[in-house]
Design a protein around this nucleic acid. Structure first.
Lengths: 214, 214
DNA sequence: CAACTCCTTAGCCATTTATCTAATTAGATA
DNA sequence: TATCTAATTAGATAAATGGCTAAGGAGTTG
């Protein structure tokens, strides 16, 4: 029952304090004490909320000496690579004409949630199509899901390296027997290009962005 | 502080019972008693949750004699007009090979949330750019927001009716003084077409779909 | 190892909330 | 009008949750 996970995710965002934390983190990582100050809460309370955000996969943390820095989950920030990223990430210009467009905060939230939704879709598709051994259970029929899976596999290839057809086939067979179809898909969907008999990964910028489909 | 609204929205989805209700409703409208039975809860409890879902704008209701039918918010269903709609709406084929693709439930949720996210974006943009009198405060610079606003205005025009340039100008001026720019945008963004000096609304299918932009 | 810093855990309290039962309202129908 | 049906409201209760304080790590630095 992955209903649980959905509910858990929304529970994580169903508290003003936690959302405020995310908004603060959208400007860059912060340590616990700072968060506590900014929100006028005790460090204990921050820990409490950080735990929930972490469980929902929304934040990450790293330790530097005694200090623990919290930040938004990397995937949420980099997965989209879309316009949303601009909104969320690192902007320090808090000076505007203070008029209408004042709800920058809302925009960030917007973006945050869009990213989270995408990531959840991605996770859900991979859960459905990839088994524990990492093998592809089947090739998704739905276009968007297919892209998710292809992207997933493409990420395992070395950028810049030239793969002879034989190697590509071997690579694919690790995950699915139908190497011919998948190899063709890699080309058709622009994950790779082919020169003579040699395959090479396209730069990530050329990969299709399933996040932009309905 | 529209943080409140965001939190309220997530609170609405932060309960398993409510999410189950939405899943049930995704197959079509249901009345309170039926929901109560299906979920093994009392009618009172259904009312309780329905109230929250309604406040979050996720469901609608209509009355027929003594019975009140709940359904997913129309906008959520029709706004997208995208693939998401397929997923959500009315599917009665619950027979599959029961294997991997078993989490249809998850897919619906997925879709639901995507739609809700879009609608929230739309609402947020309109809140920013439309004043209480319904006038346009300014023309959004961001493309996606601009589309939202144009769509909003275009909806107020009569489909199939031919508007002489003079009338279009008058129409637009009701909302914003810069009728020239907006009129041009309507054409450029394919909301309308022009024959000679006469403007007419394009069929909705031709309108741009901002929901598909990152 | 002693002292310091930052974070987490444990335990407590107040508030919110999911659910129920029982009483009430809204509307249809006889 | 009396009665029936479906939904809502009121009130109670138990559970979950946000916040605090105080004590306990974990890791650094003298």
């Amino acid at each position: 029952m992955q209903l649980e996970k959905v509910v858990a995710y929304h529970k994580a965002l169903a508290d003003a304090t936690r959302v405020r934390m995310l908004i603060l983190l959208a400007d860059g990582e912060l340590n616990g004490m700072t968060l506590a100050e900014r929100l006028s809460l005790t460090p204990a309370t921050i820990t409490h909320h950080a735990t929930k955000l972490r469980e929902a996969g929304l934040i990450q943390e790293r330790r530097d000496k005694n200090t623990i820095y919290f930040s938004l989950n990397n995937y949420l920030l980099h997965a989209g690579a879309g316009a949303a990223e601009e909104l969320i990430s690192r902007r320090h210009s808090h000076s505007d004409k203070g008029g209408q467009e004042m709800d920058e905060e809302g925009q960030k939230l917007q973006a945050l949630e869009q990213e989270a939704a995408k990531e959840k879709f991605r996770a859900s598709v991979l859960r459905s199509f990839i088994d524990k051994e990492g093998r592809l259970k089947s090739i998704p029929a739905q276009f968007k899901k297919k892209l998710v899976v292809l992207e997933h596999l493409a990420q395992k290839l070395e950028p810049g390296r030239a793969y002879p057809e034989k190697e590509i086939n071997e690579f694919i067979v690790q995950f699915h027997p139908d190497f011919a179809t998948l190899r063709r898909e890699f080309i058709m969907q622009q994950f790779m290009f082919r020169q003579k008999e040699v395959y090479e990964l396209n730069p990530v910028e050329m990969w299709p962005r399933w996040t932009q489909l309905s």
